[in-house]
Nucleic acid binder design. Structure first.
Length: 285
DNA sequence: TTTGGACCTGTACGC
DNA sequence: TGTTTCAGGTCCAAA
């Protein structure tokens, strides 16, 4: 075991299951609630220990593995700094208090892109089911001291398997989107990780070129995997909060992309972090 | 620039 | 048991 250093209090449960990532799985281990994920080909397990995170697997975790985990969990984020910036906002202040320690995650951009293409017109339970089916339908099996585990399929594996394969797994019309997106990434030789060094506008333009990726999905991918902390996904939940709390208007139609750009300016450079607190609070009302 | 309908599927409903 | 609705949207055509 190894306690990960984090800059702020860390709420693992809220962070892992707040709807930003669907690849974490709860594990009951030694009567303690642990959580498991595969990152960069390695299986990791963590558990909450007071305000911190205890990395319990791999057993003799290397420095490099520890960095991979810390990087994914964004333990260096200074939540106190973000809290300060919204001190005058009573609604936000109460939700920051209620979910103190909720962090964003830094996911793999490819896995995140597939996840949120799946999310369209869909619910959380089924998104998770679809991703599990996808992972289990490929033979990317690895073995460690806990047994076998699988890694996420690559774009070329998805192309080789074909669109029909995705349809047979229950992806519906999203099968075509994921298949075509895989083709574009492979044939145009796109390195999604490089997008981390690009700004918001360039990434929005790049991501919305993929079929099945509109404003909302692109903003999710940017916020949850590309370090664009000013990304601001507007879905039905965020739409409700913004109207009820900030606009006092639940009737007039306003395009989501207009709401998005308005509140990006309003909330500032960490608007994406604020977005996630608004989302999580509204869903847990 | 905006609007409305179609799109896969599983589930929660009403009968 | 058999419809209808809805779920963290996107795309396309038409106004």
């Amino acid at each position: 075991m190894m306690i990960l250093k984090s800059k702020s209090k860390y709420d693992l449960e809220s962070t892992l299951y707040s709807g930003q990532c669907f690849l974490w799985n709860p594990i009951l281990s030694d009567n303690l609630q642990a959580h498991e994920i595969v990152l960069g080909g390695t299986r990791f397990r963590v558990q909450q220990l007071s305000d911190k995170i205890d990395a319990i697997y791999p057993l003799n975790i290397t420095q490099n593995q520890s960095l991979i985990l810390q990087n994914h969990l964004r333990v260096d984020d200074d939540l106190g700094y973000i809290y300060q910036s919204i001190e005058s906002d009573k609604y936000l202040l109460s939700s920051f208090k209620k979910f103190e320690g909720l962090h964003l995650l830094r996911q793999d951009p490819w896995e995140c892109l597939v996840t949120f293409i799946c999310s369209s017109n869909n619910n959380m339970k089924r998104i998770k089911l679809m991703l599990n089916k996808l992972i289990n339908s490929f033979d990317n099996t690895h073995t460690d001291s806990l047994g076998e585990y699988k890694t996420f399929p690559t774009p070329d594996q998805i192309i080789e398997a074909g669109e029909e394969h995705l349809r047979s797994l229950g992806f519906g019309y999203r099968a075509k989107y994921i298949f075509e997106t895989s083709r574009i990434i492979l044939y145009e030789n796109i390195d999604l990780l490089k997008l981390r060094s690009q700004n918001y506008d360039d990434n929005l333009e790049q991501l919305t070129m993929f079929p099945g990726v509109g404003d909302k999905v692109a903003n999710c991918v940017m916020l949850f995997s590309l370090d664009n902390l000013n990304a601001f996904p507007v879905d039905v939940w965020i739409n409700r909060v913004l109207r009820e709390i900030y606009l006092n208007d639940s009737k007039n139609k306003i395009a989501d992309s207009r709401l998005r750009s308005h509140f990006q300016s309003y909330f500032g450079e960490y608007s994406g972090y604020i977005n996630h607190y608004l989302f999580h609070s509204r869903r847990n009302d």
